[in-house]
């Protein structure tokens, strides 16, 4: 939910800075600043809902420090904007192959979701194969050996030696249970 607000806030900032030609090469950087500032502002506002306990002689409350950092954030954001307004900042970089990032991110998120169902081992193996494919690996031996090797390694090293309770997944729990 808070993420949606963040996106809306960023969209509003984006629309707002369109008319300023000077800032145009810095759109991305301005949006980063806006995002950070939005989080600070959100924390500042939410801090007013904190309970105030009745402690004797306490000069500060849970809200003091987040508010303080927000007060610091205001001048700091302005400072960071100045070189952009002056046009002295390095312009935003061009976009690279964004699709690669998008696919990897998507597959990563999907494989994390899949932990619960098909377990850590299978989903990380699938993730490895997809990711290697995206990185244009076409060698079949690699595509099979790396995931299998990883599964064996992570089982013995993490699960057996380090007692990490890697998720088995409902599918396999059902199969072997």
């Amino acid at each position: 939910m808070q993420l949606v607000f963040l996106i809306v806030a960023l969209a509003v900032v984006w629309v707002l800075i369109r008319p300023f030609k000077r800032l145009r090469p810095y759109t991305g950087q301005v949006l980063v600043l806006a995002g950070v500032f939005w989080i600070g502002l959100l924390f500042f506002i939410v801090s007013y809902s904190f309970p105030t306990p009745r402690f004797a002689a306490v000069a500060t409350s849970a809200a003091t420090i987040p508010r303080f950092w927000f007060y610091v954030l205001i001048p700091v954001t302005i400072l960071a904007l100045i070189p952009m307004l002056k046009g002295e900042e390095v312009p935003d970089p061009k976009w690279g192959s964004l699709w690669r990032v998008a696919i990897v991110f998507g597959v990563l998120v999907a494989s994390l979701f899949a932990f619960r169902y098909i377990g850590y081992y299978l989903s990380s193996a699938i993730f490895l194969v997809v990711m290697m494919w995206v990185l244009e690996s076409r060698n079949r031996i690699e595509l099979i050996a790396v995931p299998v090797g990883w599964v064996i390694f992570s089982h013995f090293f993490f699960a057996r030696l380090l007692y990490v309770r890697l998720p088995i997944g409902t599918l396999f729990a059902g199969l072997f249970g």
Partner: peptide, 19 residues
């Protein structure tokens, strides 16, 4: 090669955080 290294760093990061 990066096509092997990158995927492996990803899975290491994930399992490391999980641990």
């Amino acid at each position: 090669s990066k096509k092997l290294l990158y995927p492996l760093i990803f899975v290491f990061a994930i399992v490391g955080s999980y641990a």
